[in-house]
Nucleic acid binder design. Sequence first.
DNA 1: CAGTCTATCTATCATTTGATAGGCTGGGCG
DNA 2: CGCCCAGCCTATCAAATGATAGATAGACTG
Lengths: 237, 237
Amino acid sequence: MGLRIDNGIRSVVDMNSTENDETTAVDPPDTRERILIEASRLLAVNGYHGTTTREIAAAVGISQPSLFFHFPTKRAIAEELYKHDLLPAVAGLERLVEADASPAAKLYAMICGEITRIVNSPYDMRAHISYEVLNDPDLALFQDLVNQFDDLTHSLIRSGQESGEFAEGDSWLAQQMVSALLARANLFATTDHLKRHSHPDEAATLILRSLLAEPDALEGVRRDAMVLLPLYDERSV
Amino acid sequence: MGLRIDNGIRSVVDMNSTENDETTAVDPPDTRERILIEASRLLAVNGYHGTTTREIAAAVGISQPSLFFHFPTKRAIAEELYKHDLLPAVAGLERLVEADASPAAKLYAMICGEITRIVNSPYDMRAHISYEVLNDPDLALFQDLVNQFDDLTHSLIRSGQESGEFAEGDSWLAQQMVSALLARANLFATTDHLKRHSHPDEAATLILRSLLAEPDALEGVRRDAMVLLPLYDERSV
DNA sequence: CAGTCTATCTATCATTTGATAGGCTGGGCG
DNA sequence: CGCCCAGCCTATCAAATGATAGATAGACTG
């Protein structure tokens, strides 16, 4: 449980580490950051149990025990990545849900904002996909966060259906579709396909078309969503 | 179709069943079969590297070394499950693609047929989701099968867009959405949500609504798909 | 009954893996 | 200069894990 001393130099990527920086601050050299980056890649591809600390260390270019100077355990690395992914997502979605707008606009803004965030992240974040990691009992907190996110999404879809803005249908299934698509979002970044061919809007459009009772309403929804979008980004709150 | 690859070990059923044939199969509530069932559950939840042979054995109720009487390696267990999942999927989709029908109807039939198959499978199949396993170099064959399936889906979407049946949009993204949703299909079965509330049709409807240029065409597409559906099931070929 | 084959067991091995112990180094600073 | 200590290293451990060896029980066969 090493206390970390905060000295003046803070990394460029500032918004990770969840800003409750009692123990977590930033290391002067980026080794710690590089560990997170490389670990996120390996974890995303090989899974938690399929990634060894030796592989992570090799990717960073340090010896395996050196990892444990920066992180107390292997799990702590994963935890930090999960926090980075899930906390802003849940917080942003909560702000959206409480906003004054139509469910469709909120959902559009969420999808758009979330994909933007994932694609722009320095890490390879596929938290949503890693049931493997989440299932680990010691990471139950993050399981809760995922459930929270899914529940919020679900309630958004439900209220859209109740107001008649969305077509009737299995709201649970629809929520799963949203969650499943987001889980692939970083694949977009990895394949660097999205960077040139596609926009977050395309994904949101795809989802909304499948939900909206009146397809022609899409343009209006998009406009409303653009107004909501800053709400999703914690930096602008 | 004797695709059993290995080995010296042949099950009792194979040897003496020259006459009473194929359909059924099954059932000596075979240990081998129970291994596959329990392994599929564990692999789906914990991933390949997160599942130990001891856990599988314990779930089946046998000792850990007894596993190796039925399968040469741990990997062989995963391989058999992958084969069971991917071979019929790719074969079915290939038959659909070559059929004489609209891309929309083919896609509808594929989603519907695939989800039905997954939900009814004795195994917990999430092959699509397990990049973790697939990434393992020794399982490159299955990586290929997944890519094949994705490519076929993609070409279906492309041709639908070219014919004007589908709205324009990023076909790659749309294909990812289909793939991502299918990856969750067995979650439907697990949560036994789909068994009461939802049908495979709901999922296909959701996808098709997001793709069709003319939403009103959905009913016609569904009717055409119902005709195609038997084509997807290898038993009916 | 003796022989064989299936299916399982206990005991054990070699490797991998997360983590610890302790030493070396170089830069900041009184 | 001499001390400190962040940061990294080598060497190594203990546990977990995939897999093997060999024995045993039971069923069927000749």
